[in-house]
């Protein structure tokens, strides 16, 4: 779908992107992660052909990115903006027509969206008369009205209250089910795990990690497990096939966080089963948040 190859972007003062390459598969929800100032927005602008890279190429559906692809992409920038004095319905139609839609078609689709989001009575309202959350909803509609193949959302959930954020999330998922590929940038990790199929982590202009969520998390497994049991407390003398990381005890109920020393889960369980009543056995897989922090801090230390 989208193939980003060796993109370099240099600004006067700093380097925004250093040799960044990514593959976004068709139908994916792809998360572009990274701390503020990492280069996410620069990359998004290049994909939208707002700015050009100094070197590198972008391929869209097997063709080198060009002006004709603009109509196939929908983009919602981080800094939302609409003409304040323009009526919302008229404005949505205008923006859709700039993306190549006919007036009639834009009007038809807009009606559908306004009914769907239950905002029909906004049509003739000026943007400045709407609350910020409402403006954001309208902005989202403007982004997807021309039914793009690729929807690029820069920090889509910032500025939404939890209720509206949920609505937008559902809409994103539905658009994705209908076949749209979604690329969004965020630094909110909980939405990443919920939504994304794959991610790329950009830090200080470099891509430092990418792949499917599952693969990434698997690669960050470190044989840590949570064990809950009822029975006597262990005597941690090194005879166990695992080491203790944390222990909480409450009336004979124990919660352990353990790390296996080279053995498999089954071996550890075989050791435990004759001794105690196990009520829970769960592998601790690092959250994307932890992966993110871990990777970023490691990179920072590496640079120092």
């Amino acid at each position: 779908m989208l193939s980003i190859r060796n993109i370099v972007k240099q600004y006067a003062g700093h380097r925004a992107l250093s040799d960044v390459s990514l593959e976004v598969e068709s139908g994916q929800i792809f998360g572009l992660l990274g701390p503020n100032g990492a280069g996410k927005t620069s990359l998004i602008r290049i994909i939208n052909q707002i700015t050009a890279p100094d070197s590198g190429q972008i391929w869209f559906n097997g063709e080198q990115l060009n002006q004709s692809h603009i109509e196939r992409i929908g983009y919602m920038p981080e800094e939302r903006g609409l003409y304040k004095k323009m009526e919302i319905g008229e404005q949505m139609i205008y923006l859709a027509r700039l993306k190549g839609l006919s007036r009639e078609e834009a009007r038809k689709r807009l009606k559908y969206w306004f009914e769907k989001l239950e905002i029909q009575n906004w049509w003739n309202k000026k943007v400045e008369e709407l609350s910020k959350g409402m403006q954001q909803k309208a902005q989202f509609v403007a982004t997807v009205l021309h039914e793009p193949d690729l929807i690029i959302l820069d920090e889509p959930f910032s500025g939404f209250d939890p209720v509206n954020a949920e609505i937008i999330k559902d809409e994103i998922l539905e658009l994705n089910r209908k076949g749209a590929t979604i690329l969004f940038s965020t630094h909110r990790m909980e939405s990443v795990e919920e939504l994304c199929d794959a991610i790329a982590l950009i830090h200080q202009s470099h891509k430092i990690l990418d792949g499917s969520i599952k693969d990434i998390r698997n690669s960050y497994r470190n044989n840590t497990f949570l064990v809950e049991y009822n029975g006597p407390q262990f005597n941690w003398d090194g005879s166990q096939p695992f080491t203790l990381l944390e222990e909480t005890t409450n009336n004979g109920d124990h919660l352990l966080k353990i790390k296996l020393n080279g053995q498999s889960s089954n071996q550890a369980l075989q050791y435990l089963i004759p001794k105690v009543q196990i009520t829970r056995w769960q592998e601790v897989i690092p959250s994307m948040h932890e992966v993110f922090i871990n990777k970023v801090t490691k990179t920072d230390q590496g640079h120092e």
Binding site: N48, I50, Y75, P77, R80, G81, L82, K84, L98, Q139
Partner: peptide, 9 residues
């Protein structure tokens, strides 16, 4: 109003 970014996309 920042609509410029939307337009130039």
């Amino acid at each position: 109003t920042r609509i410029i970014v939307v337009i130039v996309s």
